[in-house]
Nucleic acid binder design. Structure first.
Length: 234
DNA sequence: GCCCAGGTGGGTA
DNA sequence: TACCCACATGGG
C-alpha cells in the first residue's frame, strides 16, 4: 500500500440522520452489506480502472485491468508507460474504445509522472480544488473520472456522481436527474457528513443497486430501495 | 440482430 | 444551452 494514502477499501460507517438521503443509505447498506469499494488493490489501479470504466460495463474494464496486472505493468506509471502502445491497446481491448482509452491513459500517466512526482501520492498532496482542476484539464478526464480518481485513489472528500447516482436519485425523489453534474455533487456534499468512508460507501451502494436492479431487471421488483421510489419517475 | 453500458470531447444551431 | 455524434467491446 502506498504511504500517506487511506486504503482503497474502507469499512462502511453508520449514518444516523433522519433525512431521506440517510434513510436510503441505511436501507441500501442493510440490504446489500458493506461494499468496501473501489474494487482495486492500489491507488494506481483505481486511476487506471476509472479511465477504462468510462461508458462500459465494469466487467470489461475489470478484465482489462486484470490483463495489465498479468503483464506486470501495474506497479508504477513508469512501468505502464513502458508498455508499447500497440500492446497497451491489445490488453485493454475488453474495456471498449481501446484506442481512445490507451491514448487517454497515457496522457494521464505522463501527467502523473511529470507533474505529480511519479505517483498518486503526489496527486493526493495537492489541495483538492487544484488537483481537480488539473485532472479536468487533461484530455479524456471528465468530472466523473476525475472524482473517482480523487475520492477512491487520492482519498479526497469528493462525492462521485455517475449514471446510476443520477438515475436512482431522480427515481427516488432526491433531486432532478437533469441537474448538471456539479449540482448533483453539491447536493450530496451538502447533506452527507464529511466522512470519506461514507462518501465512498454511499456511491458504491448506488452503483450496486443500479447495476443490480435498474439495468439487469425489467422492473424495480426486489430492489432494496423500491419503498422509496416515487411513481412516474423514469 | 439490437440495445446499452459506472463518459468524454467535438461539432452545430 | 441543447442536442447530435464518434469512440468499440461484450452481455442480455
Amino acid at each position: 500500500m502506498s504511504p500517506g494514502l487511506p486504503p482503497v477499501r474502507l469499512p462502511a460507517p453508520s449514518w444516523e440522520g433522519s433525512s431521506r438521503a440517510a434513510r436510503i443509505y441505511r436501507a441500501a447498506l442493510a440490504a446489500l452489506g458493506p461494499s468496501r469499494w473501489w474494487p482495486a488493490e492500489t491507488p494506481l489501479e483505481v486511476c487506471v480502472g476509472a479511465i477504462l470504466a468510462q461508458n462500459t460495463s465494469w466487467k470489461g474494464a475489470s478484465r482489462a485491468v486484470e490483463n495489465l496486472l498479468a503483464r506486470g505493468v501495474m506497479d508504477s506509471p513508469r512501468a505502464l508507460l513502458a508498455l508499447p502502445l500497440e500492446e497497451l491497446e491489445k490488453e485493454i481491448r475488453p474495456s471498449g474504445y481501446f484506442r481512445q482509452k490507451a491514448r487517454r491513459l497515457r496522457i494521464f500517466l505522463e501527467w502523473l509522472q511529470g507533474e505529480c512526482g511519479g505517483g498518486v501520492e503526489g496527486l493526493a498532496r495537492l489541495p483538492l480544488e487544484e488537483a481537480r482542476r488539473a485532472l479536468l484539464a487533461l484530455e479524456g478526464i471528465g468530472p466523473e473520472t476525475a472524482d473517482s480518481i480523487l475520492c477512491y485513489g487520492a482519498g479526497k472528500l469528493v462525492f462521485v456522481v455517475d449514471a446510476y447516482t443520477r438515475r436512482i436519485g431522480g427515481r427516488h425523489g432526491l433531486f432532478d436527474p437533469k441537474l448538471p453534474y456539479e449540482e448533483i455533487r453539491a447536493w450530496f456534499e451538502a447533506r452527507l457528513p464529511a466522512d470519506l468512508a461514507l462518501y465512498r460507501e454511499y456511491h458504491a451502494l448506488l452503483v450496486r443497486i443500479g447495476a443490480g436492479w435498474c439495468r439487469t431487471r425489467p422492473s424495480c421488483k426486489g430492489c432494496p430501495l423500491s419503498r422509496f421510489a416515487r411513481p412516474g419517475l423514469p
